[in-house]
Amino acid sequence: MKATENILQIAKRTLQTELEGVSGLLAKLNNDFCVIIQTILISKGRVIITGVGKSALIAQKIVATLNSTGTPAIFMHAGDAIHGDLGIIQDDDIVICISKSGNTPEIKVLIPLLKLAGNKLIGMVGDLNSFLAHQADLVLDTTVEKEACPLNLTPTSSTTAQIVMGDILAICLLETRGFSRADFARYHPGGSLGKQLYLKVSDLYIHNEKPCISPEASAKEVIIEITKNRLGAVTVIEDQIIKGIITDGDIRRMMEKYESVNGIKAKDIMYDSPRTIESDELAVNALALMRTNNITQLIVVEANIYKGIIHLHDLLREGII
Score class of each variant (00 low, 15 high):
131 F>G: 03
102 G>I: 02
244 G>N: 03
93 D>V: 09
145 E>W: 06
279 S>N: 08
104 T>E: 03
115 K>H: 07
58 I>G: 06
5 E>V: 12
23 S>M: 05
279 S>Q: 12
165 M>Y: 13
3 A>R: 12
119 N>P: 06
238 E>M: 01
251 I>K: 04
266 A>E: 02
195 K>R: 14
197 L>Y: 14
169 L>Q: 08
24 G>I: 01
128 L>V: 01
107 I>S: 03
86 L>A: 07
260 S>D: 12
204 L>F: 06
289 L>E: 10
44 K>F: 00
41 L>E: 10
198 Y>C: 06
40 I>F: 11
194 G>R: 01
203 D>H: 14
292 T>H: 12
66 L>S: 09
315 L>E: 03
37 I>N: 11
5 E>F: 11
149 C>D: 13
314 D>W: 05
241 I>V: 15
25 L>Q: 10
222 V>A: 10
151 L>N: 13
247 T>D: 01
293 N>H: 07
65 T>P: 06
230 R>G: 08
217 A>F: 02
315 L>K: 03
40 I>R: 10
189 P>M: 01
8 L>K: 14
274 P>D: 01
41 L>H: 06
247 T>M: 00
177 R>C: 02
5 E>L: 15
205 Y>R: 03
34 C>R: 03
17 T>S: 07
202 S>T: 03
187 Y>W: 14
173 L>W: 10
156 T>L: 02
90 Q>S: 15
53 G>N: 02
31 N>C: 04
82 I>P: 00
139 V>T: 11
216 E>W: 08
6 N>K: 13
69 T>P: 00
185 A>S: 12
9 Q>P: 00
132 L>C: 08
299 I>R: 03
243 K>G: 04
60 Q>T: 07
277 I>E: 02
21 G>V: 05
172 C>L: 08
262 N>A: 12
214 S>E: 08
193 L>G: 01
200 K>M: 09
78 A>M: 07
154 T>V: 15
319 G>V: 04
256 E>M: 15
29 L>W: 06
281 E>V: 06
70 G>E: 05
293 N>R: 00
44 K>W: 00
71 T>F: 12
55 S>W: 11
270 M>T: 07
40 I>M: 14
64 A>N: 07
199 L>E: 05
54 K>I: 08
198 Y>D: 08
91 D>K: 15
8 L>Y: 15
79 G>N: 14
52 V>K: 11
299 I>W: 01
17 T>R: 09
62 I>Q: 07
121 L>D: 05
31 N>T: 12
27 A>D: 15
27 A>T: 14
231 L>A: 05
121 L>N: 04
65 T>M: 09
306 Y>P: 02
195 K>E: 03
2 K>M: 09
256 E>R: 14
173 L>F: 12
163 I>M: 15
115 K>L: 12
240 Q>V: 09
270 M>Y: 05
8 L>Q: 13
86 L>P: 00
303 A>E: 12
46 R>A: 09
127 D>I: 04
196 Q>N: 09
298 L>F: 02
106 E>I: 11
69 T>A: 13
290 M>T: 08
300 V>K: 02
114 L>K: 00
217 A>S: 13
161 A>P: 14
148 A>L: 05
298 L>T: 01
190 G>N: 01
189 P>F: 08
209 E>N: 15
314 D>L: 01
82 I>V: 13
88 I>D: 07
297 Q>P: 00
260 S>L: 09
136 A>Y: 10
82 I>C: 04
165 M>T: 13
273 S>T: 02
218 S>W: 05
